[in-house]
Design a protein around this nucleic acid. Structure first.
Length: 421
RNA sequence: GGAGAGGUGGCCGAGCUGGCUGAAGGCGCUCGCCUGCUAAGUGAGUAAGGGGUGUUGAGCCCCUUCCAGGGUUCGAAUCCCUGCCUCUCCGCCA
């Protein structure tokens, strides 16, 4: 949520920055609403001041056993008017709040302006692209022959997009999760195992609701929302809290299953692991002082990259252009790994700085040491990383001519063997 | 699923026979005194948000906020209704 004050002070700039992000709705109606609210507030204030002072006068008269009949009758009329105006004000405020909840965050000044993913900037590559002297198989053929997963039966159980991992595949999936969690914990992140469903307010904090309700699974009688990422529960750990500045930064890592309806993306990447309704992910979340958040974004990205480096996977880092930024993000790096069988770059992580956008929505604050004032902190998160596409790149990168898959050294203890065969 | 308790400031916790209670008391925190240091003691201060004015962060004035929404009333933290949330006990269950 953006503070209404920035719309007042520099509406043209805000409108331009929103347009850079592809947000077309005009902000003039917002300012109009704000103007009405402030005018009405002033009028109400005056009426309330009168009511308050007269009430005190009445109390004084009553205590002195004097008659206050006239005052009471005139106050009756004033109170009626106040009640009416309060109703109007509440309605205006509800409208403004609802409108503000639908306005995305502004892109940071350093973000390249662009329309869509074609305008994203490749910041760096890591490692050489793997080189093969035999004909590659894609992950689906490989994994199916090795018995790692069974999409047909997954579909029978839950529908397409719900993968069923089997045998060594299930073991590998669990091993990947454990490896990543251990990795992050060793580097200073606190491990969290969060709820996989949240209430409405929690999903409002991170920005999924109200705008993207159709992307979420919702349970009918209880109105709980299945999380699309551990970002949601973990960010809400500190909702409605005030942290001491000395407690910052706080780093969390959490595994969760992630549930996404992927409404509107039917027919896109339907094959295999590229786009799923349920997948596993290890997430990184940071709560930091506002001054530190851009440095923290760099180290967060490096932390996610370190996973890929340790697994020896060729990847690249993209800086998202303004038009490709997600709703809540001010700046974002995507990590894409190379899948040699698919011959595609696959996104496995988005590392974002939300500045105070989520903190405002979730009322997550900190108390500054210098002046003891309370202010919104900054939140960041990044995947570290999502498993399905990681699995794709692993299988395709480490396949051998005889159809087996050699495992990177670090995974061997987690899987209990050196190769998949 | 059944029964009950409760939601007050950074925290704990009074108030709940309606009117100097924006809220006692305590803890914590800040500044000062005291002390060789620490502890103890002691004095003062200590919620947030908004509007106006000044004008640019000195101040001054006003309003709102005791879970949320509605009602009663000249006036509600205090009375009534609805909702949400938390906790306890019982039942069921991994």
């Amino acid at each position: 949520m953006l503070p209404i004050t920035i719309f007042r002070t520099d509406p043209d700039l805000v409108e331009k920055r929103l347009a850079d992000k592809g947000e077309t709705s005009a902000i003039a109606p917002l300012l109009e609403l704000d103007q009405q609210i402030r005018q009405l507030t002033t009028e109400l204030n005056n009426m309330r001041a009168e009511r308050n002072s007269t009430s005190e006068e009445i109390a004084r008269l009553k205590r002195a056993q004097a008659d206050a009949g006239d005052m009471i009758t005139s106050m009756r009329r004033l109170s009626e008017r106040i009640k009416g105006e309060e109703g109007r004000l509440a309605e205006l405020q509800t409208r403004l709040k609802a409108a503000l909840e639908l306005i995305p965050n502004l892109p940071h000044a350093s973000v390249p302006v662009g329309k869509d993913e074609k305008d994203n900037v490749v910041v760096r590559h890591w490692g050489p692209a793997p080189d093969f002297d035999f004909k590659l198989e894609n992950h689906l053929d490989l994994g199916t022959k090795l018995g790692l997963f069974d999409f047909d039966r997954g579909s029978k159980i839950a529908g397409s997009g719900f993968p069923l991992y089997t045998g060594l595949g299930a073991r590998l999936e669990r091993g990947l999760i454990n490896f990543m969690l251990d990795f992050h914990v060793e580097r200073g992140f606190t491990e969290i195992f969060p709820p996989f469903m949240t209430r409405y307010e929690s999903s409002l904090t991170t920005g999924q609701l109200p705008k993207f309700a159709e992307d979420m699974y919702r349970t009918e009688p209880d109105e709980l929302y299945l999380i699309p990422t551990a970002e949601v529960p973990v960010t809400n750990i500190h909702r409605d809290e005030i942290l001491d500045e000395g407690e910052l930064p706080r780093f969390y890592t959490a595994y969760s299953a992630c549930f996404r309806r992927e409404a509107g993306s039917y027919g896109k990447d339907t094959r295999g692991f590229l786009r799923l309704h349920q997948f596993n992910k290890v997430e990184l979340v940071k709560f930091v002082r506002p001054d530190d958040s851009y440095d923290e974004l760099e180290t967060l990205t490096a932390q996610a990259e370190a996973i890929l480096q340790t697994l020896g996977l060729h990847y690249r880092v993209l800086e998202l252009c303004s038009g490709d930024l997600s709703f809540a993000a001010a700046k974002c790096y995507d990590l894409e790994i190379w899948a040699p069988g698919e011959e595609k770059w696959l996104e496995v992580s988005s590392c974002s700085n939300f500045e105070s956008f989520q903190a405002r929505r979730g009322n997550i604050r900190y108390r500054r040491e210098a002046d003891k004032k309370v202010d919104f902190l900054h939140t960041l998160n990044g995947s570290g990383v999502a498993t399905p596409r990681l699995l794709v790149a692993l299988l395709e990168t480490y396949q051998t001519p005889d159809g087996t898959v050699r495992l990177p050294e670090v995974l061997v203890p987690y899987v209990g063997q050196k190769e998949l065969k």
